[in-house]
Design a protein around this nucleic acid. Structure first.
Length: 592
RNA sequence: GCAGGCGUCGUCUAGUGGUAGGACGUUGGCCUUCCAAGCCAACAACCCGGGUUCGAAUCCCGGCGCCUGCACCA
């Protein structure tokens, strides 16, 4: 059974399957009025409590990218696996797995060869033992299109926002005035053509991501963070990758202890884990439903050296919502190789180094007459030669195979001393990657609370789900305990009676709330209790009620969603209290 | 993609061959001086396409979607 939040979400407008008028498309969901606003609030919270305080640079890059980009990133190579299905039991297998031991590099084989090798070596189905397979077909999780009318220029929808950041590293490094470390953030959508999307917002073909690439130096001293102290004492729950023979088990530690006991490799990863945890807690995920689990070696993505997932305990089990990966220099190295553009940063040497540099200087005065039009190419080739081999006349092989004989008067050697004050290196990167759509769902599910009304609770039923129909009295009183900072609607304004001028006062109060930047609404329908109930169900944290006393002294009641308690304030004070409660915190300090 | 189950107002559902009923909801009205389910009325549905049949929500086939398991999950 789906969690009752699912039908509430559709009924009240958080989210629902997309394109339902055409029977829908799996893995695509619409965010409704409340969902769109909730998502925006989550992004704002992330930006104000994480991106801004950390000084990250935020960028926005295209969702489409060229083939070379994703060749370089490894996504096309790694994810265009060939799949074969067993004819008798229909089980699908990755071709390269079946051909292990049969071929030295099974991943690189084209489909026809895979089919041939499977028959030739009588490979058996690991499941049922039969040895007859359907033809191999490529299985790509990347969405493909074309740029312009030329069919050969493939365009791909990005499977993560990260590559747009890596591809911009040289510019971003310059814009940060060539100082490391620094982080770059991006919020956007990513696309993966999932085989069988399921579980609503948890497995989508198009989803929201909030990613950070934290560029830093490669030495052990760089794997640290100046503000580690702020989070060192925060408590967390870690599930390290199990060592041989020992099962994975959660440990409760502070981040300081996690580093001291070598559960987490270094303080830099630990720092990011702490910031991720802080964000999730502020978004309303209960601490007891949150943990970090370390990937095992065989679970790791092709680029990762170390990876921790933030997981949230849902009805469906533990679900990954943030991945914190140490990507090393993998991505920058790949893009440097593929593009020919340097992705290196520079480090100032503690002590300048004197180096003797010997260069080959082509002598075009003699090269020109000897080689005419080829002189320029030969000159370039000479420059790139190792000077050690250049004793006298040599034979040079040009591109295209032509050999030319170079005389000693065709070039000269120049030796000079160079004083080096910097050295180049490829930065490393730690990547906290937030699954925005998943977080949105986790927040909704974990904030969902049912209170069995006292008259009906014959058993002690705590906060579990209703047995049958929801959205009604049968299931109990539904309350969405969204933190005020992310609640899509901040305050409801209710006239106690829809008469005697109370509604007019409510409309005035609503205007003032909106002027304060608070999303507000007036509800005059039916009884006051029903209006509170309707507001509680979608997580409105505060309700202001206009009553007869308001007409006399201008005061209203301010009701708190989670406690149902009310206080009397002037309208201005009530709105100030709401505004204070929904203001996004800025986190330099520790804790939550 | 495979196997099994499922698809009825916005939501939860009743309905096994004679063209759909309830509850919640929404809207309007009545009542009501602070915590949903008081009264009256209205609104609103058989996933899509074919087939069988005099007649299909119901039976058959295909598609799409959802759920569970397998596989996949950067």
């Amino acid at each position: 059974m789906a969690h009752p939040i699912v039908s509430l979400a559709k009924r009240r407008g958080f989210y629902w399957p997309a394109f339902e008028i055409y029977q829908g498309v799996g893995g695509l969901y619409d965010l409704g009025p409340l969902g769109a606003r909730l998502q925006q609030e989550l992004v704002d919270l992330w930006r104000s409590t994480y991106v801004l305080p950390e000084g990250f640079l935020e960028v926005d890059t295209p969702t489409l990218g060229p083939e070379v980009l994703f060749r370089a990133s490894g996504h096309l190579g790694e994810f265009a696996d060939l799949l074969v299905c067993c004819r008798s039991c229909q089980e699908p297998f990755r071709a390269d797995h079946l051909l292990e031991g049969v071929h030295p590099n099974p991943e690189a084989l084209p489909a026809p060869e895979v089919d041939g090798l499977l028959v030739q070596h009588k490979v058996r189905c690991p499941r049922c033992g039969a040895s007859s397979f359907d033809p191999a077909r490529p299985f790509n999780l990347m969405f493909q299109s074309n740029f312009g009318p030329i069919p050969g220029r493939f365009a791909y929808l990005r499977p993560e926002t990260a590559q747009g950041i890596f591809a911009n590293f040289p510019a971003l490094y310059r814009l940060h005035r060539k100082r490391l470390p620094f982080g770059v953030a991006q919020v956007g959508r990513a696309y993966r053509n999932e085989i069988s999307p399921r579980q609503g917002l948890l497995r989508l073909r198009e989803f929201g991501q909030m990613e950070v690439e934290y560029f830093h130096g490669p030495t052990p001293a760089d794997k640290d963070h100046p503000r580690f102290g702020e989070i060192a004492a925060d408590l967390t729950s870690l599930v390290p990758a199990p060592a041989a023979g020992t099962p994975a088990a959660p440990v409760a530690v502070t981040f300081q202890q996690a580093v001291d006991r070598h559960i987490v490799a270094h303080r830099l990863i630990a720092y990011h884990l702490a910031r991720v945890q802080q964000f999730l807690l502020r978004a309303g995920i209960p601490a007891e439903r949150l943990r970090f689990r370390q990937h095992e070696a065989d679970e790791m993505a092709h680029y990762a050296l170390d990876c921790w997932d933030a997981e949230v305990l849902l009805e469906a089990g533990w679900v990954e919502v943030v991945g914190i990966a140490d990507r090393g220099c993998f991505d920058l190295e790949q893009h440097q190789k593929a593009s020919g553009i340097s992705m290196e940063a520079e480090r100032i040497l503690a002590e300048p180094r004197e180096e003797e540099v010997t260069e080959v200087i082509p002598n075009f005065a003699t090269l020109g007459p000897s080689f005419k039009g080829k002189a320029k190419a030969i000159g370039e080739a000479l420059r790139s030669l190792d000077h050690a081999v250049l004793a006298g006349p040599i034979t040079l092989t040009l591109e295209g195979g032509e050999e030319v004989v170079i005389r000693s008067d065709h070039f000269s050697l120049s030796t000079r001393k160079e004083r080096r004050t910097v050295e180049p290196f490829l930065p490393h990167v730690v990547e906290p990657s937030f699954g925005l759509s998943r977080i949105l769902y986790c927040v909704l599910e974990t904030c969902y609370q049912v209170e069995v009304s006292p008259s009906e609770s014959d058993a002690e039923q705590g906060t579990s789900e209703p047995e049958d129909g929801e959205g009604s009295a049968a299931g109990g009183y539904v309350r969405l305990r969204l933190p005020p900072v992310i609640a899509p609607t901040k305050v409801g304004v209710f006239p106690l009676m829809d008469r005697d001028g109370l509604t007019e006062l409510a409309l005035q109060a609503e205007r003032r709330a909106i002027a304060e930047g608070l999303s507000a609404f007036v509800d005059t329908s039916q009884s006051i209790g029903r209006r509170y109930a309707r507001a509680d169900e979608v997580g409105v944290p505060f309700c202001i009620t206009i009553d007869y006393q308001t007409k006399e002294d201008g005061t209203v009641t301010l009701r708190h969603r989670d406690t149902r308690t009310q206080e009397r304030h002037s309208i201005v004070d009530a709105l100030l209290a709401v505004a204070a409660a929904v203001r996004k915190p800025v986190s330099f300090g520790r804790g939550t």
